[in-house]
Structure formats: C-alpha cells, structure tokens
Simulated assay, not measured.
Amino acid sequence: MLAILAFIVIFHISSITLLFIATIDNAWWVGTNFTVDIWKTCLNSTDACKEIGSNTPYFQAIQTIQATMILATILCCFGLLCFALQLFRLKQGERFVLTGIIQMLSCLCVMIAAAIYTSLHEKFHPDLNDKSATYGYSFILAWIAFVFTFINSIMYLILRKRK
C-alpha cells in the first residue's frame, strides 16, 4: 500500500510540474522567427518580447486560457494538500473523493484552456504568418497534463484507505 501511495504522490507532483511548465514557459506556438505563449510573443531575430495586450484579437479568449491554466495549477496543488490531509484524517476504508473531485476540476480547466487555444491560436496573432509554425512543447505539455490529471483523479476516486 505504501508503494501505491508513493506512486500516486509522484504522479501528482509530476502533474503539478507539467502544469507549471505549460503555464509559464514560452512555447505554445513556435515559428522560425518567433515563439508565442499565453502571456507574450517573442521575436527571435531581435530577442524582444511583447506582452499580449488588450489590443490583441480575441484578447478575452487569451485571458480565459490564462485564467483556466492558473486555476488548474492552483487546484492541482490544492489537491495534493487535500490528499495529504485526507490521508491522515480519513477512516480506514473510505475513498479520497474530495481529492478526486479537485483533480477532476483541474483536469477540466486544462482541457478548456488547451481546447480554446487549439481552436483559436491562429487568430490570436494574425501578424505572425509563418506557414511552418507548429505547436510548441508547452502546448503539448498542457495536453499531457490534462491526461495526467484525469488519470490521477480516477486513481483518487478508486483508491481506498487500507491498512
């Protein structure tokens, strides 16, 4: 049982790490001369970064992505704290339902952010017309974090506190 708990904690911490990297790092949309994330646009030729301002097309959608990624990270961190508290407070045989629900909400937030970015990423920066541009590793890490938080929430809902 100790090995299962250790695996779940490591899995949860890796989910938190993926969420932090995906939220902070500048690689959601990458072209030959630029990198874009949910916070700023950086041009490789001049090493200048410009924050995404309110004059950007679909600025409210970008703010939604920012908010849901931050909320997902906070919920995932809170879920780990909740798991630690429930580990010592729950009676034997009870499930970690609250922790599972918190992780499911974190999963939902990541899915919303990544889905909005998937559908509207080309409209966010119409001035960056690079046909060779692709999704960056931060965007991919966001989808991997979605899968990790979903699996983690299912594990919490199934897990019972045993002796």
Rank of each mutant, 00 (worst) to 15 (best):
G79H: 07
L159I: 02
M104G: 11
K163Q: 11
H121V: 03
V36E: 08
Y156Q: 12
I144R: 01
L80C: 07
K91T: 10
E94M: 12
N55P: 11
I116H: 03
T73C: 13
A114L: 13
I70A: 14
F150D: 00
K131T: 04
K161S: 06
I140M: 05
A142C: 00
F20I: 06
R95T: 13
D47Q: 15
M69F: 10
A145G: 03
D47G: 11
A27D: 09
T32N: 08
A3G: 13
I112H: 00
A133P: 09
V97E: 10
I154A: 08
L85P: 09
I62A: 06
A142D: 04
D127C: 10
M104H: 11
L98H: 14
I151T: 05
D47C: 10
K40A: 09
A84L: 09
F88D: 12
K40Y: 06
V36F: 07
T41L: 09
Q66Y: 12
I74R: 03
C42F: 06
F139Q: 06
E94Y: 10
T68I: 00
T134H: 04
F96W: 06
I13S: 15
G53D: 00
L90P: 07
F20W: 09
L90W: 07
G93F: 09
T17V: 13
Y117L: 01
F88E: 14
T35R: 06
K91F: 11
I112L: 04
A133E: 07
R89E: 11
L90D: 04
V110C: 09
L18G: 06
Q103T: 15
F7W: 15
L87E: 07
A113S: 05
L87A: 08
H125D: 06
G93K: 05
R95F: 13
Y137M: 07
R160A: 07
E94W: 12
V110E: 01
C76S: 13
T41C: 11
Y156F: 15
S119H: 10
C76D: 04
L5F: 15
T99R: 02
L2A: 15
G31D: 00
I74D: 05
Y117T: 00
G31C: 01
K131M: 01
L108M: 12
T32I: 07
V30Y: 02
R95I: 08
I144F: 01
V147F: 06
I116M: 03
A48G: 13
S54L: 13
I13D: 05
Y135M: 12
E94T: 11
S14L: 04
L157W: 01
T134M: 02
I52N: 02
T99E: 08
L108C: 14
L120D: 14
A48D: 13
F83E: 01
A3W: 10
N129H: 11
I38V: 06
Q103M: 15
V9M: 07
T56D: 08
A6H: 10
S15R: 04
V9Y: 04
A145Q: 03
I4A: 14
C77M: 14
Q103C: 14
I102M: 12
C82M: 07
N152D: 05
A22E: 01
F88N: 13
I144M: 01
D47R: 11
I140T: 03
E94N: 13
F88R: 14
A48I: 12
L80E: 02
N129E: 14
K40G: 09
I16R: 04
I62R: 08
Y137C: 03
Y117Q: 05
E122Y: 12
D130P: 00
L105K: 07
T149W: 01
V147H: 02
G53M: 04
